[in-house]
Design a protein around this nucleic acid. Sequence first.
DNA 1: CATTTAAACTAGTATAGACAAGTTGTAAAG
DNA 2: CTTTACAACTTGTCTATACTAGTTTAAATG
Lengths: 238, 238
Amino acid sequence: MRNKFGAIYHDLANKIIHHIYPVGTYLPSETQLAELYGTSRETIRKALAELLTNGFIQKIRGKGSVVLNLQRFNFPVSGITSYKELNNSLHMHSKTEVLCIEDQHVPLENFDYQSDQNLPATFVERLRTIDDNPIVLDRDYVLKSVVPNISHAVAADSLYNYFENKLGLIISYATKTITVEHPSKEVARLLALGDHQDVVVVRSQTYLEDTTLFEFTESIHRPDKFNFVDFARRQKIN
Amino acid sequence: MRNKFGAIYHDLANKIIHHIYPVGTYLPSETQLAELYGTSRETIRKALAELLTNGFIQKIRGKGSVVLNLQRFNFPVSGITSYKELNNSLHMHSKTEVLCIEDQHVPLENFDYQSDQNLPATFVERLRTIDDNPIVLDRDYVLKSVVPNISHAVAADSLYNYFENKLGLIISYATKTITVEHPSKEVARLLALGDHQDVVVVRSQTYLEDTTLFEFTESIHRPDKFNFVDFARRQKIN
DNA sequence: CATTTAAACTAGTATAGACAAGTTGTAAAG
DNA sequence: CTTTACAACTTGTCTATACTAGTTTAAATG
């Protein structure tokens, strides 16, 4: 833990997860927490702000910070999370089959992206199965300008793990759209879909810390296996 | 504007939207902004943090705050937003037909919600159309314990507007799930769907500022009209 | 007994200052 | 000319302090 408020955030989050601070009760007050952790109140407030945006607590002025119910975090698909991370956290054993790795240009029209030039990329197509049932077809277009080469072994493991831990890339933010579409016959076959069945397509553009565009992704989900869970706070900035 | 950093946030957001700070350029440094607005640096940093989470800027340590491209905000369905707000912001003229207002218990099994007791609610069913094309079927269950009565006129206008501006309720956060399901024949008819067409169901539970559960909502979308846009930052708390 | 008031808590906002850490340009050194 | 070192910038973290604004409790008042 590099910074204090991150450490405090994790400590409080853990204590909430393990019901040391039970749902519906109040956390110690900010002043008390400041004493507990031997830090200033502002530092505590930064940790609490993080808990707030992640749905761990609700702050009520004049009263305190209430612990919220976390059962909704059973299947978190919100935020930017890779398939591998997701699976590990859910204790499911799954399989990833690499169908294709080759050089392609990004099909910009699919992503509603305006650009004069073609964007050279490594195209990685992978089929994700759980107990041999196809769940998701992932199509990644990783820009050559950022990552020149991707091996089969890396694709079979985890792209994100490779990018972040081996290459030291810092993935920062993404834009996502979710739509429902008719699959091509090829996709329908791969996902073992019946006739007339639509697919859920999650398309995202991922950016690095320095705002360089880095990757386009198309995740094609079986409709019956798709579940997106979100925690949202109402925007109200005075 | 009650607080300073809110005012500064709005000012900066407007200037970004109107390209006074163009995409790809740096904002003035935090120290400069502090002087410009006659405030302290911490206050500026709170405003910038808000711009960051809303995808207006990217902060780069040692360099500054870069203005990001905002074309993705053309159709924001992320966060908690009511249908009316959404429409106004998109300059579409639409129609809302109230199909039903009556007292019902919340069908808890639909929402994966455990409870011993029945929850008495006002059930409001509304069909949203644009140019006479059905888009969404909204089913709201507003808990009687919070709002005893809802008039037809209110339902035809905007529930959220009524709750927040007339009743003074402060809506704070929600949990949402998105799934794809087979519609009932009744729903298929209302949304003018063909055979074998699935629907996208967005189910949410909405809470007030004091964490009281307030409303269950089921939004049933035509698959071809559904589009969910999201901006997500990668979680990485040290 | 009911009501009002005040004190003691809670979180929210704002400031000023210090230092760490990353980036960039420039001057000095080779 | 190239490299190194440094100074001057940037944002990140942390502290200490003061005040505002809600909530709750309990004492004082009627």
